[in-house]
């Protein structure tokens, strides 16, 4: 396809929208993996689970965004439970937590995936809402409403989380536990409880991300596999645990994917995020915004 300024502009606009979405689905992982150092490869599976819960609530007539928000308390508790289990079995015992921890979350992802298949079948599911299916135009560009809704939700979500981590006492404790667990223990705080809390928040965020996932397009149970690589790419690219970095990395990924999509076609797009990831790992492993 010949290069043109209009096309590039369009690619960038879509890239930004896509990028906000990528950042939003990664931000939970940015807490659980980036800050807490938990190799949470089941994060995308939990997100897809959230998408299915949104779908269920949608059948009762609930708006998907609202559904996502309503799901957060339940997911928060789920996250706390998962972390507690992980802690008791792996972190507490210490030795060899690496390989087995990863394998544990990998197994968990498979179980969630099949659980969804058994409950809902392999068919794709979609939700309905006033803004889904509509679009508006700026010049020659047609922008689907759903991407705008997702972008707004993503931005709100990220702002809230960033403020929470930097302004509240617990939020700062979460950041502290990432840096120096020992110091926190000396201050009389229990690192395990803080981590458990943080993991709960990360999981609650995954519920909202799941809602966005099903707003932006149809969802099927095996979808998490494609998002394992993507979300980890964003978190690593961002520099572990950096919230600003997560947004920047999401945007970089979204824009580059969308440009490649328009210039070289859809078959090349998936490789973008991963080539980027490999380059970053090779050159600057602490990520773009890492300490």
């Amino acid at each position: 396809m010949p290069f043109s300024f209009e096309l590039l502009l369009e690619a960038i606009v879509f890239g930004v929208l896509l990028g906000c979405f990528y950042a939003a689905v990664s931000i939970g992982l940015s807490v659980s993996f980036g800050l807490l150092d938990v190799p949470h490869v089941a994060h995308p599976a939990i997100m897809v689970f959230g998408a299915y819960c949104t779908w269920l609530l949608g059948r009762l007539g609930l708006d998907p965004v609202l559904a996502g928000v309503l799901l957060t308390p339940a997911f928060f508790l789920l996250g706390m439970a998962v972390y507690r289990f992980y802690y008791e079995v792996f972190e507490k015992r210490g030795s060899d937590a690496g390989v087995r921890g990863i394998a544990f979350f990998f197994g968990l992802a498979l179980i969630i995936e099949v659980g969804l298949i058994l409950a809902f079948g392999v068919d794709q599911r979609t939700v309905e809402a006033a803004y889904i299916g509509k679009s508006f135009s700026i010049g020659d560009m047609r922008i689907p409403m759903r991407t705008v809704v997702v972008t707004v939700v993503a931005l709100v979500l990220m702002t809230v989380l960033t403020l929470y981590l930097s302004r509240t006492f617990t939020g700062r404790a979460i950041k502290a536990v990432a840096q120096d667990e020992q110091a926190l223990r000396l201050m009389g705080a229990n690192p395990m409880r803080i981590k458990q809390w943080a993991f709960g928040i990360a999981t609650a965020v995954a519920a909202v991300a799941g809602a966005m996932l099903i707003i932006i397009g149809p969802v099927d149970p095996g979808m998490d596999r494609a998002y394992i690589g993507r979300t980890f790419s964003v978190v690593v690219l961002a520099g572990l645990g950096s919230m600003t970095g997560t947004i920047a990395a999401g945007l970089i990924l979204g824009i580059s994917e969308s440009i490649v999509l328009m210039q070289f076609g859809a078959s090349w797009a998936p490789a973008v995020s991963f080539s980027l990831l490999l380059i970053v790992l090779g050159i600057r492993p602490q990520g773009l915004f890492g300490r």
Binding site: I102, S233, P270, L277
Partner: peptide, 16 residues
């Protein structure tokens, strides 16, 4: 863990 993530990337790149 970085190696693990990089290897996921490898699969997608090879397939592409």
């Amino acid at each position: 863990i970085f190696f693990a993530i990089a290897t996921i990337a490898l699969v997608v790149i090879m397939e592409t």
